[in-house]
Simulated assay, not measured.
Amino acid sequence: MRTALVLGTGLIGTSAALALVQRGVTVHLADHDPEQARTAAALGAGTDTAPDGPVDLAVVAVPPAHVPAVLADAMRRETARGYIDVASVKGGPRRDLEALGLDLTRYLGTHPMSGREKSGPLAASADLFEGRPWVLTPTRDTDTEVLNLALELVSFCRAVPVVMDADAHDRAVALVSHMPQLVSSMVAARLEHAEEAAVRLCGQGIRDVTRIAASDPRMWIDILSANPGPVADLLSDVAADLDEAVRALRALQSSDEAKRREGSSTVESLLRRGNAGRVRVPGKHGSAPRSYEVVAVLIDDQPGQLARIFADAGAAGINIEDVRIEHATGQQAGLVQLMVEPQAVPVLSAALRDRGWALRQ
């Protein structure tokens, strides 16, 4: 791949363009908002001038509802040898393109499973896709050259290619992305008019659950409008679980001992089902999840604190598998939770104490 055209210079399009530029590809940028394309160009993602002729690959990075129209226009103008889109829904756009009577041998639907709560070119990064799955949905009609160009793009972005059927992909992202977005937003919505005294008690748990609720609503309306059926089916199942949980919790208020036992059993079953589902979430580097122990360290909110902790852990020969920070409400301090292999806990704890760190249980 020597040349590419990125149509849509938001977070995903600009990030892909930055990665391609780093690999020496000449990238042309276009957007319905010329100012956004100029911003992406100023960030080093390519040029906002039109190519002189057909490029090797056109990357359509617009919301799902606009993919068919943008792709159809690009293909009719023969802007590239191959065409892909990076929208988060795959089945619907392909059927819309088929209805337009286009030659789809040169088209491949793809979806990089990466993103951020922020959108737009200023949020873009060349390493956004590194180590992340990038779904490819070829059919028997997909031209081999187009598939190779898509694989080259995935390689340049240092992502991991995953081949799936388009409709299977849509059901999968409904489960792992679209439905969780709505549930997170619903939980966060409970905080909007909550008493200030209650909100001040927010800890890491509520921060984790509501993190993605900060996402752009306009972007999510586009996504959910393109995949409503699978998401509605999943929410219906969640609603059934919620109804069961409500009945069980009401039973726990009963004066009838048998009802309380039944309610407790139902709640426990729900929590254990959650345990079983959580275990299936891939762990570090996509491997099977592993059980780590936590070493919690109290730190001041000052420059260099994290660097010192990591350096001291490294000096003790301990690999930090993961890290989380829980901030203390209203204080310039917090807890750094270092996730390590169970056998590393005593060694790391002793080393950190020797270096003056205050550990917490």
Rank of each mutant, 00 (worst) to 15 (best):
E262P: 03
S177G: 03
T210G: 14
G356I: 06
W357R: 05
Q337E: 05
D167I: 09
L348C: 05
D143L: 09
E326F: 01
R218F: 10
R353L: 08
A328M: 11
E341S: 01
P161D: 07
S177N: 05
W134E: 00
M113W: 06
T329C: 08
I223G: 02
R355Y: 07
D301Q: 11
H111K: 09
V279F: 08
A226P: 09
H111E: 13
D56R: 09
L153S: 01
D96I: 03
G283L: 09
A333P: 04
S119F: 07
E192M: 09
L7D: 09
V297R: 02
P161G: 08
R95Y: 02
V62W: 07
R77W: 15
S254P: 03
D300N: 15
R250W: 07
D208Q: 04
L136G: 06
A30Q: 14
R290D: 06
G24L: 01
Q343I: 15
L71H: 02
V135L: 08
H66I: 04
S15L: 04
A42C: 11
N319E: 15
E257S: 09
P282K: 13
R158F: 07
M186W: 12
H285T: 06
T49H: 12
A197V: 13
R158T: 06
A245T: 00
V246T: 09
A189W: 14
R250V: 13
G101K: 05
T266M: 00
R190A: 12
K118M: 11
S114I: 02
E35V: 10
P217M: 01
Q204T: 06
D354H: 06
A166C: 09
G115R: 00
